[in-house]
Amino acid sequence: MEAFTTHTGIGVPLRRSNVDTDQIIPAVYLKRVTRTGFEDGLFAAWRKDETFILNHPAYAAGSVLVAGADFGTGSSREHAVWALMNYGFRVVLSSRFADIFRGNSGKQGLLTAQVAQDDIELIWKYLENEPGSSVTVDLVSRTVTAGDIVAPFEVDDYTRWRLLEGLDDISLTLRHEQDVTDFEGRRPAYKPSTTVG
């Protein structure tokens, strides 16, 4: 995973709450067996509407998505994260993220920065008044800067550390392989096996 320290890019105000992962990428786009090429499916239904924010030339090259509350609800599909990243997004700002989506993002290096709804409203207004403006997201200081607005954001310490270092979870766990083996020696014998029965 690529390390993340700070990112500056065009902010995209997405004034929708409850953006579920079926909206981020509909199921028909989930058939690929790779991690790439999902940008075509990103917000597929909404992008057919010419007034949709990403169809506005000033926002089309956006990399910081500023969304309403409860972003990423529903299906566990990590394809939603791949679609956002394949398109070019590196950060999503929202006042609340769905748990599975946030976890998936952390594994892939997409920063989900939790910003108070009042600040989201201010950033929306700024980006709508000044289309194409940049937003800077600094993971070291945990702040978002958009014009004169400087807002703090929340991200848990462990995810922040992993993102800053660009660390891969599996390698981290395999450092403790002996603990796993020890645990396996203590599991009750009645626990089921998929291959017996």
């Binding site: 599909r77 599975i100 599996i170």
Partner: peptide
């Protein structure tokens, strides 16, 4: 439910 990165993690480490 888990995402695909976690599926890989569980496959590799249980």
């Amino acid at each position: 439910g888990i995402g695909t990165s976690e599926v890989e993690h569980v496959l590799a480490t249980q």
